[in-house]
């Protein structure tokens, strides 16, 4: 594989129950490309956590996955409220999710830490009132 492949998804902010469709599709695509199961697990969990965050906090957004010879990049972009304190948001257990979201088993404050845990590089670019872009890289 000499050229990179890009998969683009629009993440629907209205539909909580269908969250994860983009991540499941990425998992299938990576499997077809012959990527190892552990790498697929890392990429798809990191992406799913990002997808859920966009649904919970930002009213949806976009997800792009770029597969190249030596790495997989995941770029998640939304026009939500932004993250006021990124360091605080990165702490395990910190969450601003509602009780309704928590009752579904989300909002444990593990989303961003999991994204960092499963990727080799993660950069959060967030402006309050404008939105958030997160770029993650998993090395192959």
């Amino acid at each position: 594989m000499s050229e990179s492949l890009t998969f683009h998804f629009d993440v629907d902010g209205e539909d909580f129950t269908s969250a994860g469709q983009a991540s499941v599709q990425v998992k299938k695509n990576l499997r077809r490309l012959g990527i190892s199961p552990e790498i697929i697990r890392q990429v798809s969990i990191a992406m799913y956590e990002g997808e859920i965050n966009m649904v919970i906090h930002a009213g949806g957004g976009t997800a792009d996955v770029i597969v190249s010879e030596d790495k997989i990049e995941i770029i998640l972009a939304d026009k939500g409220p932004g993250i006021a304190d990124v360091n605080l948001a990165m702490q395990e257990g910190y969450s601003t999710a509602t009780d309704q979201v928590r009752s579904l088993g989300f909002g444990a404050g593990m989303g961003l830490p999991n994204m960092k845990r499963y990727t080799d590089e993660m950069i959060i670019d967030s402006v309050v009132g404008e939105g958030t872009t997160i770029r993650m890289v998993v090395n192959l």
């Binding site: 129950t17 499941v24 998992k27 199961p37 697990r41 969990i45 799913y48 088993g105």
Partner: peptide
């Protein structure tokens, strides 16, 4: 028992 457990099971493998 909500629908999200299916995505979690799939992605966590």
């Amino acid at each position: 028992s909500n629908i999200n457990i299916l995505a979690v099971a799939t992605l966590a493998d």
